[in-house]
């Protein structure tokens, strides 16, 4: 392992051990935070008992659908906006301030449009992720060398063919940034929506445990979400690296 990797491990492990020590000595009350080892034990128990499986499957399914929709939709919308420079210049400031809006407030509208249940939650996850992907697509398309665009014109490619066969591969590093953000945002959107107003799913289970002073279950599920998101990010990061190396970038 490199020195940097070792230092990183050292700091993360040191932080967890410090929290563990503070909890064990009673400096942090168990009513505020339970020891990390207890969280892991509770989580193992929860997973073995199968009590949380339905909620986990539901949340992961929602995130996956929201992610696929926001990545493909964001790429298509971004490519379309990029084709009209005037529209693009006008829409830029709105895209840039998009994330300041509280989408959760649109939940009642989504219930009417998509019915009670998963549809409305997926819609919020999609709305959260799609704009990160649109912005990344626009950034990537801005940096395509003009010679490639002219090549597409010489081969008489239509707009869709040029977007898929020339622009998509050329802009891929920027698109990866967009996908990474879309992963993070669809998790945030789905879990936050479940947290505030669903009646099932991981977010709901955490807030239910909170309301019932069930710190063991609450921290076990929080640990599960944190580990899951970190592992998904790390896997995608190493996949991106391998791909970039193979393409010699």
């Amino acid at each position: 392992m490199t020195r940097i990797g070792f230092l990183r491990l050292f700091f993360v492990a040191g932080f967890i051990l410090a929290v563990e020590a503070l909890c064990r000595t009673g400096a942090i009350s168990p009513r505020v935070l339970i020891a990390p080892s207890d969280m892991a034990v509770r989580l193992a128990w929860l997973l073995a008992s199968g009590k949380a499986n339905a909620d986990i499957a539901e949340t992961l399914g929602n995130v996956a659908i929201a992610l696929v929709l926001s990545v493909s939709g964001g790429f298509a919308i971004g490519a379309a906006i990029h084709a009209f420079p005037r529209l693009r210049r006008a829409i830029d400031p709105f895209l840039a301030s998009y994330y300041a809006l509280p989408f959760f407030a649109f939940y009642p509208l989504f219930i009417v449009l998509f019915g009670l249940g998963r549809g409305a939650i997926i819609a919020i996850g999609f709305l959260f992720g799609v704009v990160a992907m649109i912005i990344a697509t626009l950034n990537g398309f801005d940096r395509i060398p003009p010679v490639l665009v002219r090549t597409a014109a010489i081969y008489h490619m239509g707009p869709a063919a040029a977007a898929l066969r020339i622009k998509l591969p050329s802009a891929i590093p920027y698109l990866f940034t967009g996908v990474k953000l879309a992963i993070a945002y669809s998790f945030i959107g789905v879990i936050a929506a479940e947290f505030i107003m669903a009646s099932s799913g991981l977010g709901y289970s955490i807030s239910y445990a909170f309301n019932n002073f069930d710190n063991g279950t609450m921290y076990a599920l929080m640990l599960f979400v944190i580990v899951l998101v970190t592992v998904v990010n790390a896997l995608f990061y190493s996949y991106e690296r391998r791909l970039m190396r193979r393409w010699g970038r």
Partner: peptide, 28 residues
Amino acid sequence: TGAEVAEPILVSIYSLPKVTLYPLILLI
């Protein structure tokens, strides 16, 4: 060195759904 050690940690904290941490903050 500090920046290289911290960057992936900061990026993964950035992408966490922080709503999950809200109960912790309420308890504190």
